[in-house]
Write a protein that binds this DNA or RNA. Sequence first.
DNA 1: ACATATATACTCGAAATGAGTATTAATGAG
DNA 2: CTCATTAATACTCATTTCGAGTATATATGT
Lengths: 313, 313
Amino acid sequence: MKEAVSIGLSAAILAVEGEQPCVLVVAHDGLHDALPFGPFDPARHRTLELGLRNWVGEQTDFDLGYTEQLYTFGDKGRHLPSSHSGPGPGGRVVSVGYLALTRKGREAAETQWRGWYHYFPWEDWRDAKPAMIENIILPALKKFVKDAGGSEAADMRRERVNVCFGEGWDEERVLERYELLYEAGLVEEYYRDNGLPAKGANLGTAMLFDHRRILATAIARLRGKLKYRPVVFELMAPTFTLLELQRAVEALAGLRLHKQNFRRLVAEQGLVEGTGKFSTPLRGRPAELFRFRRGVLRERQAPGVRLGGRRPR
Amino acid sequence: MKEAVSIGLSAAILAVEGEQPCVLVVAHDGLHDALPFGPFDPARHRTLELGLRNWVGEQTDFDLGYTEQLYTFGDKGRHLPSSHSGPGPGGRVVSVGYLALTRKGREAAETQWRGWYHYFPWEDWRDAKPAMIENIILPALKKFVKDAGGSEAADMRRERVNVCFGEGWDEERVLERYELLYEAGLVEEYYRDNGLPAKGANLGTAMLFDHRRILATAIARLRGKLKYRPVVFELMAPTFTLLELQRAVEALAGLRLHKQNFRRLVAEQGLVEGTGKFSTPLRGRPAELFRFRRGVLRERQAPGVRLGGRRPR
DNA sequence: ACATATATACTCGAAATGAGTATTAATGAG
DNA sequence: CTCATTAATACTCATTTCGAGTATATATGT
């Protein structure tokens, strides 16, 4: 007799408020934040995505707008059984992760929005290169390289460290970086999954099961997609100023952008159109309110916000 | 009691031979080509990918090199039960698709390589824009637009048709195009899945279950990845001439490229290094043999073959 | 010697990109 | 009223990348 498999569906539901990028979490066991998730019931749902929409709807009172499948994880040991979602002991959960974009609204009582850089503090380069990279991460990873058995293994680790945290920050490698920190024992989940006592630096806030990995995948995907699909607008109010749009993109990408070039790009691409109305800011010159121009989808093949943001050294 | 779910693993194993891009298929039921696939056994395999490698190894005598997860499909009706892979009647198969790249070698008896444009004849623009687009596809899609109930639905269909087959060919939209043709009833799978008698144009060669959809996903992903990761080299022999490399890229992308610019790009990016040896062609000047320069992975953040190929009108 | 086929080098204009400077329009403090 | 402050918006400029060529070199077979 074959071991039972059940399918879990998780969603990284993302939004932006002002300058803060947020993720919807449920305080699952009082200890760890979790993504909204639940089992897929093949009897009720025609497709995985419909199952997700239904489940999330029940759990969070949210209507998902844009959704996209991310990845299916089936690793033994990274999804420990739980009374909530798992089958009996010995059963295996394969979890399908989704990315969903929405505007912040009223959420159910058990859920709350949380800034995603709580979970990935090394990913926010808007103000400056996060100090923890030089102070904690790189020294620890240096040790990780040295501890490799064999010089070839050490070379491979060195290369990974360099790609992830070395010269030339690539904001899309969110998952790669998280996985590296996991393997190097720098995040709590590593110790939990392997039944070891925690030790050393535990960077960022841990999540339930492999949910931080799913969130990393979601952020990575969103950061990539931003550049060639107009997905930001799923997160914006119907009208917005160009600076608000820029701040949202910066929040997602974790980078600062050049203001004038950003406007040029957005304008040239025909991503937005003016409404003729103006914002009434507390100080400073009022800015025109824009809305998303749905027409771009028809006209351009890769309409997106190409960010050529400069990273702080 | 919940309905049973089982996990199926399928792999689109791709290779290139000269100018032909190939996929490894098994002649499953004598009627339809199928991708190598099999059930995931959680008792034996720690991860999904290991399950896949094992299964494919047994079925095809192949060692997979580069692999990448594509998508997880769980649609009811697009994966009909089969004695081979499914659970009993009423059970549901969720299938996880993978992309694998390899060099052509000796394969098991039941498997064979087949050019992938057999399944997607409209995707090969190397010689010319495929005539079937103007002659068959566009007229049929025009009808599909007209048959929409309501003008808003018609607008949406028109937009999709335009994005997929209109001005400006985007070689990456392989899946989008296949799905559109599916919905418009232009491929055999549509009639099979819905239990209807086949009618009208059946474009390309059909495959078992949803395997053509998985293959479309694989090609789309590969065409995208090509541009920012040096994946072509997984498909090349250890040494090759620049024209061979170009022909391989063209085969995958389904486009012709500008020869001089291609070399400039490949050289400037440092993707390859000369070996000092030369090819001995049947005619024409011998070309230098190159090999992949592994160093790029360290140096550049997006090393790939940016194709700016011109499409024939 | 030359037709043919391919490799390789070099040129050139158009467009995109990154990094500015300059100017305009609002606010509140004095 | 003036001015410091804040932000919007317009314009400039050098550099790089891109698409499309032309020109030349080196093989083969007849």
